[in-house]
């Protein structure tokens, strides 16, 4: 009897503490307007109810696409290190459960994730734990990661797992230090004197890895996610455009046809800038490292992206007419 009493007290205390901490974190999260742990999403939803273009992808997209260059109503909702499943989850949440209208989604992809070279890419969905009880698609994907995953969500605080420090840090920046959020989600990478050294060093280090050919076939997980997103965009009458961005001294030049064919069959426009035939992008002065352009490079790239995007949208409009 004493044991049951003790275990009951322990469990009740744990549940109460769990609810209390969750309440505090919910408050902090709602007030956060900067950073990647909710800040970018909150800022978007608070300041926009309509977007002409939503650009989304990983850190390369965050640093490469300058929203102002694309259009006035463009927002860059990229999150560092995240793969396709994360972006699809986030878009699903925005389109189905939030009050925002979007005309075009500009989705940044990496060749590694298209051909399944990125290990454990599907696990990135766990970074959307916050939406577990709010979004069935995200819940299904997270639950699919392991048999008993759902049990962890019995505790409300688990949705903050791994994010607490970022939430607190971003709340302090937003509320106490009044740090301005990045303009329309764009994270600028200003050029510095060390860039060329970093690029050369990075190029040498990565040359072995980058020499390897990617897989033969498009990854099934990639196909599942992109096809789900395509269907969602069609349902919501949104134009989905996929693109890749340049790298410094690209080595992998094959597989373009495979990607082109796949997107053609899917009727999704695909702009492949990975090995863009433009000498400017081979200048070491435009790069932070071999994968990330600095703000000068981003400006050049965004202009090219805008040009091709406008052309594409004009063609689409003509097709409709």
């Amino acid at each position: 009897m004493r044991i049951i009493k003790y275990l009951t007290v322990f469990l009740i205390s744990l549940l109460l503490a769990d609810q209390g901490v969750n309440l505090v974190l919910e408050r902090l999260y709602a007030q956060t307007m900067t950073g990647q742990s909710g800040g970018k999403v909150n800022y978007l939803l608070k300041n926009f109810d309509h977007l002409s273009t939503l650009s989304i992808g990983n850190s390369r997209c965050a640093h490469h696409v300058i929203p102002e260059v694309i259009s006035d109503q463009t927002y860059n909702l990229s999150h560092n290190g995240m793969t396709l499943i994360y972006h699809v989850g986030l878009i699903d949440q925005l389109l189905r459960y939030e009050n925002i209208q979007i005309d075009t989604i500009l989705l940044h992809l990496e060749r590694e994730e298209i051909f399944g070279e990125k290990k454990n890419a599907e696990k990135d969905i766990q970074h959307l734990k916050y939406f577990y009880n709010k979004n069935p698609w995200i819940q299904k994907k997270i639950s699919g990661l392991s048999r008993f995953e759902f049990i962890k969500y019995f505790f409300s605080t688990y949705k903050w797992n791994g994010k607490v420090m970022s939430v607190v840090n971003n709340w302090i920046k937003s509320q106490l230090l009044n740090a301005p959020p990045p303009p329309k989600g764009y994270v600028s990478n200003p050029p510095s004197g060390r860039d060329s050294i970093n690029v050369s060093w990075d190029y040498q280090r990565l040359s072995k890895i980058r020499g390897a050919e990617p897989g033969e076939h498009l990854a099934p997980e990639f196909k599942d996610n992109i096809e789900y997103l395509n269907a969602l965009c069609k349902e919501k009458k949104i134009t989905l455009i996929c693109f890749t961005s340049p790298v410094y001294q690209p080595v992998l030049k094959n597989r373009n046809a495979k990607m082109d064919n796949y997107f053609k069959n899917l009727s999704v426009p695909f702009l492949n800038f990975y090995d863009i035939n433009d000498d400017d992008f081979q200048s070491i002065w435009l790069w932070k490292d071999t994968y990330h352009l600095n703000s000068d490079g981003a400006l050049l790239f965004s202009k090219i992206l805008r040009r091709d995007l406008n052309q594409l949208l004009a063609e689409k409009l003509n097709e409709k007419k």
Binding site: S13, A17, D18, K123, S146, K152, F155, T157, W160, N161
Partner: peptide, 19 residues
Amino acid sequence: TGLKVTMCLFILLFGVSEG
């Protein structure tokens, strides 16, 4: 109990959950 509850909260909030 307080110590244990605190450790449990740390596990929920900071624990690496991938086993």
